[in-house]
Amino acid sequence: MMKYVLTTLLIFGVSLLALAQASFDVDENKPVVLNGIEYGFAIRNESKKDVGGKGSFGRYEVTVYATNKSGCTKLLLPKQTLFGQQDQDLLAQFDCVNATGMRLTSKSGNVRAPEFYVPYSTSTKNAEGKTVTNTIQVKAGNILHSGETVSTNFIVIVPENEMPRMKVRVREFLEQ
């Protein structure tokens, strides 16, 4: 019995390691380019906030983005994973490593690829025996066109006299 439990735990641990993503440091206005996609962030607004009894902190409005500079369209096709099909559109997750998360602010933000649809036609016979063709749009996956930028905004609070320190975890694109 103990042998089966240990084997199960070992398999689960190896599975989690296989799902782990590498993270990369990103400096403001100095993006990281991986597989032809540029990942970066910019600070849109900066202010100071006094948090009751905890002192003064820096409040930053941050935009994180991914730009396809590969010269070709990137397709993200749905695939079944150990945990289902959630986050199939996730391109990158940006983590602010020195964010406090106080006052309903974030510590991270996600950049997601837009959906794309393809037409699907079916033919059926109606009551009179005539063939009727119906076409519907079916979600085929997610897409990032060459030159396209997707972004998201969030607010972080960091200790006073510090700038946000960002790391990005990116989705791996398999070459086909």
Rank of each mutant, 00 (worst) to 15 (best):
D25I: 15
I143E: 15
S121T: 14
Q93F: 11
G13K: 04
T67Q: 09
P114K: 03
F83L: 07
R112P: 03
E160D: 11
S106D: 12
I143K: 02
G101M: 13
S23W: 01
E175R: 13
K69L: 08
G40P: 03
S146A: 05
I37P: 02
G52F: 14
Q93C: 15
I155P: 03
E162C: 07
S23F: 12
C96V: 13
T67K: 10
G101T: 15
A140Y: 03
S70E: 12
N45W: 10
N98L: 05
F116M: 00
D50T: 14
D87W: 08
F24G: 02
M2Y: 11
A92K: 07
K49C: 06
G55M: 02
A113Q: 00
E46Y: 13
T149L: 01
K79Y: 14
T81C: 13
V150F: 13
N153E: 08
I155K: 03
V62I: 05
R165L: 14
R169M: 12
D27P: 09
K54D: 08
G129R: 04
F83Y: 08
L10E: 02
C96Q: 06
R103H: 01
I43N: 09
M1H: 04
N134H: 08
Y117F: 07
T135Y: 04
F41C: 06
L17I: 14
E175A: 13
T73G: 09
E172P: 08
V32T: 02
T105C: 07
T124S: 12
G13Y: 06
V26L: 10
A20T: 05
S121P: 00
L9C: 09
M2K: 01
Q93N: 14
L91T: 08
I37H: 12
N142I: 04
V150P: 00
L82K: 10
F12H: 04
S121Q: 02
V118P: 03
S56C: 07
Y39W: 08
M102H: 09
Y65E: 07
C72T: 15
E148C: 04
I37W: 04
T122P: 00
T7W: 14
R103G: 11
E160S: 15
E61S: 06
G84N: 04
V51T: 01
E28V: 12
E175D: 15
V5M: 08
G13D: 10
T8P: 02
L34H: 10
E172I: 14
L76G: 11
S146H: 10
N98T: 11
I136F: 05
V132Q: 01
T124C: 12
L75Q: 08
F24I: 04
M166R: 01
A140Q: 00
A42E: 13
Q93E: 15
G101Q: 02
R171M: 10
K79M: 02
G109Q: 13
A20M: 00
V111I: 04
P78G: 01
I136K: 11
E172M: 09
G71S: 03
T63D: 13
I43L: 07
G141M: 01
V26A: 01
